[in-house]
Nucleic acid binder design. Structure first.
Lengths: 132, 132
DNA sequence: AACACTCTTTACGTTAACGTAAACGTCATC
DNA sequence: GATGACGTTTACGTTAACGTAAAGAGTGTT
């Protein structure tokens, strides 16, 4: 786990992140408003760390699979939840399994839908041959 | 494709479907209000066909993977879109491929998230051994 | 007839996730 | 010192997907 720890202290402005992820600055401020990220300040200006940037990336990934922001954050927080307490570990494990069950159901639904689209595509091809 | 055509003419009341799918009757009427299903009537009462029922099932599957109702219906309508016209077939094929690309991206995101959860679970196990 | 259901329409309320606009602060630059 | 470019706060607006409540119709039961 020992990394070279090069430049973890990189910083970003709001417009940089906005452009990189193709989201509005309003969206980024909204995430902060909801407590999902907590950038530092240089006077009034917000300064985002590499960790903030990663959180945004993960939130957006969650969005793409249809999770709400709260759900995404809930999952993300599992990653670095160092609840050393044994009871906390247990409840964390339970939550992880619940999430995984839901995500696996999602994957089944996704696969069904994909194979249905495959069928449509094949039917289309055949029809094209018939027509042409 | 010749099926035995047993009882395709089955009918359902709104409360039957509501219970079967564990959604409210309001939701079912809402779907109709939006034009996603068009049940017949017995006087005032709505009567749902097997096809209506299937559409609801597919809409709900779409919901589970995070699609909007409009998106779900858009995909569902691809299934029985018998656009015999060659140009229509072509544009349908394009739309099918677009959808599939998005769904495949979704599956990648899903798989990443699942493997991240696997990691969390393993870390938890190790921590449990350390603690106990 | 009175009730109990199930269904109907109409309509206002709610939450999430932002969009949009107004009004202002801070630098650099022309 | 005015003009941009970029940032800030505050606040009202918007859409999707229903929830919830009110008031009534139809059908069967006691």
């Amino acid at each position: 786990m020992l990394r070279s720890m090069g430049n973890q202290d990189q910083q970003f402005t709001i417009s940089e992140l906005s452009q990189e992820f193709d989201i509005s600055t309003r969206t980024i401020r909204f995430y902060e408003e909801k407590g999902f990220i907590k950038p530092e300040r240089d006077g009034q200006r917000r300064i985002y760390s590499a960790a903030d940037r990663t959180r945004i990336r993960l939130i957006l990934r969650g969005k793409r699979i249809g999770l709400t922001l709260a759900e995404s954050v809930d999952i993300i927080d599992m990653y670095d939840h160092h609840g050393s307490d044994a009871a906390q570990l247990e409840s964390l494990l339970i939550r992880v399994r619940e999430r995984r069950a839901a995500l696996e159901q999602q994957r089944r639904d996704l696969d069904e839908m994909l194979s249905a689209l495959d069928d449509v595509e094949n039917v289309c091809r055949n029809a094209q041959l018939t027509v042409s």
